[in-house]
């Protein structure tokens, strides 16, 4: 039996627009997705903001009803059998909310231990252990409002491990963390996987998915556009090269001209202080450089590098240049 089985899952949000003449607007957040997660697997759901990752996690954690399709978690239906699912899973949603800020970390953990039906004598041992595991030991008596974002995130992880769940949903756990905090949290996730826990991780950081996940589903506009191992995803761009160009103040219309060139597959722009990095995926490799530079004539261009594609480039190709790494 798979830990997670998702079949043709769909979620539509309905909202009203207008004041006098109110109209119902439908937004398809998750559009007919299917995937399975094996027990003990660390499965990644990778996609840009608004792709439907959090909506998927909320449906799998019984917090949201699907509009269509089915989903089973540990063999139980997420709509009809939410009661047996809840004690067996843990979940965190990225961000700082969801904790009682005016209370200490220990108070927060003691409270959630009671709500997860953890026996008091077990909680007494587990809380100090989890605080140490999350490097919050010595700070447990302090109010959460004084914690940094990274500390709050780690407290969330401690909270979700209180009842030792067999399946974890980690929705963008490293979002907003500094590089060191994010690296530490990724190590915690690796440690959890080594304990044979099943983990569904959502992220929009390609390197994070690459470093942690055994399989990745790339989700864009609510649809899964690719599902493979990180190596398998990289094969999507094996026939391409990436040309990185340093430019200064590139106008959007030039980007459209670039995208229309035969030698160009995808274009993304990253802001780097005063300049921008233009990442052009091209099947032509260095031979395409003159044509690209001709399109950029009149603009100040700095360094030009031609390199092999990475998972990030595969992701950019899959999401059609919408990524914001």
């Amino acid at each position: 039996m798979n830990a997670i089985e998702v079949k043709n899952l769909r979620r539509v949000y309905r909202t009203t627009i207008g004041v006098i003449r109110r109209r119902v607007k439908e937004v398809v957040a998750v559009d007919d997705i299917s995937f399975d997660v094996a027990p003990g697997e660390l499965f990644g759901l990778l996609g840009p903001n608004g792709a439907g990752k959090t909506t998927t996690v909320k449906m799998l954690t019984t917090l949201l009803f699907p509009t269509g399709g089915t989903a089973k978690v540990l063999g139980f239906d997420v709509v009809k059998q939410s009661d047996p699912i809840r004690p067996r899973i843990g979940f965190i949603f990225g961000g700082e909310r969801g904790l009682y800020w005016r209370l200490s970390a220990i108070d927060n953990l003691r409270y959630f231990a009671s709500l997860y039906h953890v026996e008091p004598e077990v909680a007494r041992k587990r809380i100090p252990y989890l605080l140490e595991l999350m490097r919050l030991d010595g700070r447990g008596q302090e109010k959460v409002e004084g914690y940094s974002r990274g500390m709050k995130q780690r407290l969330h992880v401690a909270r979700t491990l209180l009842h030792d769940p067999e399946l974890l949903f980690l929705d963008e756990p490293t979002i907003g963390l500094d590089p060191i905090g994010a690296r530490e949290l990724r190590q915690v996730i690796r440690d959890l996987q080594s304990e044979k826990k099943t983990i569904l991780l959502t992220t929009h950081y390609m390197f994070e998915a690459d470093a942690l996940c055994s399989r990745i589903a790339v989700i864009v506009h609510g649809r899964i556009v690719a599902l493979d191992t990180p190596e398998g995803l990289k094969r999507h761009v094996r026939d391409l090269s990436v040309i990185e160009l340093e430019v200064y103040g590139i106008p959007p219309e030039i980007l459209d001209v670039l995208r229309a060139l035969d030698v160009v597959e995808a274009v993304t722009v990253e802001d780097r202080d005063q300049k921008q990095a233009l990442l052009v995926q091209s099947p032509g490799g260095s031979e395409a450089v003159p044509e690209i530079l001709a399109t950029l004539s009149g603009l100040r261009v700095g360094k030009v590098i031609v390199r092999e594609p990475t998972l990030e480039d595969a992701y950019v190709r899959l999401v059609g240049g919408e990524a914001s790494p």
Binding site: T62, D83, F91, F93, R97, G98, L99, L115
Partner: peptide, 17 residues
């Protein structure tokens, strides 16, 4: 305060809380 989702997701019924 953003804690409602967490509370609904625990095994204890919300009415008891």
């Amino acid at each position: 305060t953003g804690t409602l989702e967490t509370l609904v997701g625990v095994p204890t019924p919300l009415g008891v809380i």
